[in-house]
Design a protein around this nucleic acid. Structure first.
Lengths: 205, 205
DNA sequence: TGCCTAAGTATCGATCCGATACTACTTTAT
DNA sequence: ATAAAGTAGTATCGGATCGATACTTAGGCA
């Protein structure tokens, strides 16, 4: 078992990224968690941009995330909009300022320096190894995958390149299929959609 | 450039580890940073177990780390001892309780679940890919490596398996060479030891 | 002796974070 | 139709994180 070794490497890399995030931030100093929340909101689709989804993604409670989002909003980095169909739900979108900040800060400069020195082939190897590890970790522990919509088993592409989500039957724009979805389910998984006690329709994209 | 992808994977893995660390902790709930500090102190050699080294390793300021260590000491997870040669320096060692806690919590159960399912070969691939990435990141940004003493370019092994550090000329026990050293310098690096304006002797092990 | 530097601590304020309690809204059961 | 249960989100409290700043103690050096 190489778990000690692998854990050590990832912890080390993550610590360096966090230190980077702390020192960077571009003028308006953001905390690492704030930056991660902003980052998520800039790469998720329009059905996954709610406070609850951010909390799930970051592995924090919704109360904790609520404060972080309040700060981001106060700094004019995100905007809130109430869902008209279900008025309990809030949709969050990064402002232009917010998007610029994410683009400047992620990925961190140090990582770019390092990866730029590696061959395409080596980069692929690293990306594949990490993908495999993450995928295995999520599957072994039955965690949410937060994958791209276009890799979801419920995505159907019909005639004339019309995309449709098999869970909600909704039409999807091409753009949406390249973003992270909260309801993403890995294609290889034979498991059926878990329709537990909750009868609410999931809201995938 | 696969940097976006690679960053995403690592950030995701680290978030899961942190969530694990928060929920675990075994009775005495430790914060993720506290656990990481305790972990470091349980794998570093006797010359790298100071507050300053912990701060360097975690990428935090010494003031911040000082508080964390105070809490660990109050919980009887570490012990402090003043260096007799330089009485400014404090040496930190985990107590028996501290060591048990680290052993229980690191690596996290979820990672063990995931890695246990992979073949030896796949585990090696992942470990190698991460090692390469981390090594490259440290070298490209001139960061401290915090590697094992036995992989340091300054380690010399003399007759009768007597180990000696080329920087301090000190004798080293076999045990020490398997631990993390603050002054570790990667073997492949042709760079000379940086003896800058500081005239202090480094304290490798 | 006196100055400089280094290791470590103390304190403050902004933020993080979970726990708890609450409001507003939707869905379900009766 | 109405009550009950469940969900999304917010507010507040207390302990911890974290950087900035200022400080104490100790060693190095002229």
């Amino acid at each position: 078992m190489k778990d000690d070794l692998i854990y050590g490497y990832i912890e080390r890399l993550a610590a360096l990224f966090r230190a980077d995030a702390r020192r960077a931030g571009g003028g308006k100093r953001l905390q690492p968690v704030q930056l991660e929340a902003l980052h998520y909101l800039s790469i998720c689709n329009r059905y996954s941009n709610t406070p609850a989804a951010v909390a799930e993604f970051l592995g924090l409670t919704k109360g904790t995330v609520s404060q972080t989002l309040r700060i981001l909003q106060a700094d004019h980095l995100i905007e809130k909009e109430i869902d008209q169909k279900d008025r309990r739900i809030v949709h969050l979108s990064p402002t232009e300022r917010g998007r610029e900040l994410v683009t400047r800060s992620i990925p961190p400069q140090r990582l770019q320096n390092a990866i730029g020195q590696l061959s395409e082939h080596t980069q692929d190897n690293i990306a594949n190894a990490l993908n495999l590890l993450l995928h295995n970790l999520q599957q072994a522990n039955e965690l949410k995958t937060f994958g791209l919509c276009k890799t979801c088993r419920y995505l159907r592409t019909e005639a004339d390149q019309v995309h449709r989500c098999g869970l909600t039957e909704e039409h999807l724009h091409e753009d949406d299929t390249g973003k992270i979805c909260r309801e993403h389910t890995t294609a290889e998984l034979p498991a059926p959609p878990r329709r537990g006690p909750r009868s609410r329709q999931p809201r995938p994209g």
